[in-house]
Amino acid sequence: MAANYWASTQRRHWQFSRETLSEIRQQLEDEERALVQQYPLPDRRLLSIFFNQQLGKLGKKMNVRQQALATAQVYIRRFYSKVEIRRTNPYLVLATALYLACKMEECPQHIRMVVSEARQQWPADFIISDVSKLGECEFYLISEMNSQLIIHHPYRTLHEFQGTLSMAQDDISLAWSIINDHYLTDLPLLVPPHVVAVTAMFLALTLKPTQTGLQAVASTAVSLNSVSPMSKELPGTTPGPPNTQQKKVQHLVSWLAEGEIDIKAVVECSQEIISLYDIWEQYNEKTCKEQIVRFVKARGLDK
């Protein structure tokens, strides 16, 4: 079903347990042992940050909506769960995923436009000007995803909750950007979107309200994480937040308790996001780029 997450292909075919996902990845690596050893890559999350930045730059030039960027990121993650990254030209995969996501999210872009923007954005020799390469890559993406292209995002749940929980605009924006960040982790392949939405709201309320923006959140999250595990905070005894904020958290927690939300999943999800902010400090755009360029050039994948 298209709008019903429970019957969706996303839940039936693209939601894995942590164990399964790492087995899938392990198998992929085992099949390409030599390649993997020859071309080391940064932590997957750091690579995802790089991808997301590149996508963001490309998307900005074409005025692409956030939801299409999010869909593109999920496509990329799905694709690379089935294809070894060192066998591909990631720049081409990025541009193609965005091109396809724009069609699926009802903001289509002409293929020529995508190719020419991509060539301006990235060293032009990474994307050849002939659109047929991107067209071919689209076949590859769709085929690996078994034509399962409809993605359920947490944004919709957040939007629905916004009303029921009467959250403040600031909290919503923060939750929104936390949702944006979860695409940098494996969470889209691990948990249902509504769990991510709840987690984002929870984090938005528990993180210091004066601080906004990614880096700010990151540093708070790091300290939060080192103070106490998230699970202890669930009863609403968060360190720091002022009283009103605490009330909001309590409200959220009691609301959670009434519903059928899997609290354990929310806790795990929070931890995942917090550890993302943790590792973010190590991000270095230049390293990511160099490591990608190395295998693309050496293997002639840009041809």
Partner: peptide, 17 residues
Amino acid sequence: YTGISQSACREMALCSE
């Protein structure tokens, strides 16, 4: 390869779902 039409994309995605 010229890029798949939006209509074909929708049809593939919806029929799969």
